[in-house]
Computed example of a mutant assay.
Amino acid sequence: MSTHSRTARSGDRAASALAYGVVGLGLAFLAIPLAITCLMALDARTFLGPLPPPALSLHWFERLASRADILSSLRTSLVLAVLTTILSVSIGTAAAVGLARGDFPGKATLTSAFLSPLIVPPVVIGFGLLLFLSKAGITNGMARLLLGHVIVTVPYCIRTSLASLLGADKRLTEAAMILGATERQAFWSITIPLMKTGIITGAIFAFAISMDDVSISLFLSDPSATTLPVTLVSNMRAAFDLTIAAAAVILMAVTVLLIVVLDRLVGFDNVVGQGLFRS
């Protein structure tokens, strides 16, 4: 083996080791805080003390279940997430069909407008919505939260549904109509099944983002409608205790459950590869 080949192989091994090291550090950076949060939520002490805890207990979860403000905000978050998912999937699916099948002036501009909330900072969206809805006289907290969450989740539903539809052969719909199906029948029997992957993925993203949102909800919440993340942030400022860690563990469990559901119903290969994002 020549000196040049040995040098090249040594460089490749060094680059591979560096890449693995960077990936390992990234995973550790993400996983260690989550592990510490889980450990704190199981702390048997009644106060916040140094780690590791001397014993483990579920009493912080029991205390969490007795907190009326947290349970109320959890119900609000769940109802809000379900409504947001329904509206976002409906709007996103309809918009995706129009953008994929339509041919009209300004199509690219309209697509950019639909997807713009993905790049606008949520704080800007929340503050802008607060001013706009106040001027419009919309003071109901739940209505304001729903509008804000739909605005930030619709782009995900459009993007996933549009990607699924663009990756499908539109001649299938045309064939169904040639064989006697009406436009409505072709839409429900051909187009929607072709979009199933994108619709399910967008729905899970919408639900998870709505449950986790803080920036927009801080601006749009009111005493009658406060989401769980906003309540947790308020408790952290007022009187920090480990019920917040217990609530965080529950949110992590919900996230893991959504990931498992996404993998079982759709599969990660279909979400991130295998032609889903063809244009």
Score class of each variant (00 low, 15 high):
residue 113 A to H: 01
residue 169 D to F: 03
residue 133 L to G: 03
residue 155 P to L: 06
residue 163 A to Y: 06
residue 131 L to P: 02
residue 120 V to W: 00
residue 140 N to E: 11
residue 138 I to N: 02
residue 156 Y to S: 11
residue 167 G to H: 02
residue 169 D to W: 05
residue 171 R to M: 12
residue 151 I to N: 06
residue 147 L to H: 04
residue 124 V to K: 00
residue 122 P to L: 11
residue 122 P to Q: 14
residue 118 L to G: 02
residue 171 R to C: 08
residue 118 L to D: 02
residue 160 T to M: 15
residue 152 V to E: 02
residue 150 V to R: 05
residue 160 T to P: 01
residue 118 L to C: 03
residue 145 L to F: 09
residue 140 N to G: 13
residue 139 T to S: 13
residue 164 S to G: 13
residue 154 V to F: 05
residue 124 V to W: 09
residue 154 V to W: 03
residue 165 L to H: 08
residue 127 F to E: 11
residue 112 S to T: 15
residue 121 P to L: 00
residue 140 N to D: 15
residue 121 P to H: 07
residue 172 L to C: 11
residue 125 I to H: 01
residue 169 D to E: 11
residue 113 A to T: 13
residue 169 D to H: 07
residue 129 L to K: 02
residue 131 L to Q: 13
residue 165 L to D: 10
residue 124 V to E: 01
residue 131 L to N: 14
residue 147 L to T: 14
residue 171 R to P: 00
residue 166 L to R: 15
residue 137 G to M: 10
residue 166 L to E: 09
residue 166 L to P: 06
residue 127 F to M: 14
residue 127 F to D: 01
residue 144 R to Y: 03
residue 151 I to F: 13
residue 141 G to C: 02
residue 137 G to D: 10
residue 122 P to G: 15
residue 146 L to D: 09
residue 116 S to V: 05
residue 172 L to F: 12
residue 126 G to L: 11
residue 138 I to V: 15
residue 119 I to R: 05
residue 153 T to H: 06
residue 151 I to S: 10
residue 127 F to C: 09
residue 135 K to D: 11
residue 135 K to R: 15
residue 112 S to A: 15
residue 168 A to Y: 02
residue 172 L to W: 04
residue 159 R to F: 13
residue 120 V to S: 00
residue 127 F to S: 13
residue 121 P to A: 01
residue 125 I to W: 00
residue 149 H to P: 04
residue 119 I to S: 09
residue 167 G to F: 09
residue 114 F to H: 07
residue 161 S to H: 01
residue 120 V to E: 05
residue 168 A to I: 00
residue 161 S to K: 00
residue 171 R to V: 04
residue 141 G to K: 04
residue 164 S to H: 07
residue 166 L to F: 08
residue 163 A to H: 07
residue 123 V to C: 01
residue 114 F to Y: 14
residue 132 F to E: 00
residue 152 V to S: 03
residue 113 A to N: 01
residue 145 L to I: 10
residue 170 K to I: 12
residue 168 A to E: 05
residue 135 K to M: 14
residue 166 L to H: 14
residue 142 M to D: 06
residue 132 F to P: 03
residue 164 S to R: 03
residue 142 M to K: 00
residue 121 P to T: 00
residue 154 V to G: 07
residue 130 L to S: 13
residue 137 G to W: 07
residue 149 H to I: 11
residue 163 A to R: 04
residue 136 A to L: 10
residue 143 A to C: 07
residue 133 L to P: 03
residue 117 P to D: 12
residue 163 A to V: 05
residue 125 I to D: 06
residue 146 L to V: 05
residue 128 G to T: 02
residue 139 T to W: 06
residue 138 I to E: 04
residue 134 S to G: 15
residue 136 A to N: 08
residue 165 L to T: 06
residue 150 V to N: 08
residue 154 V to Q: 00
residue 168 A to W: 03
residue 142 M to H: 12
residue 148 G to P: 04
residue 149 H to A: 05
residue 146 L to T: 12
residue 151 I to D: 02
residue 170 K to A: 15
residue 135 K to F: 09
residue 153 T to L: 05
residue 112 S to I: 13
residue 137 G to P: 10
residue 121 P to R: 09
residue 157 C to W: 08
residue 157 C to Q: 04
residue 155 P to W: 06
residue 142 M to F: 15
residue 136 A to T: 05
residue 145 L to P: 10
residue 113 A to Y: 09
residue 155 P to K: 12
residue 149 H to K: 09
residue 134 S to H: 12
residue 156 Y to V: 08
residue 114 F to T: 08
residue 120 V to T: 11
residue 131 L to M: 14
residue 146 L to A: 12
residue 141 G to E: 06
residue 168 A to R: 07
residue 157 C to E: 11
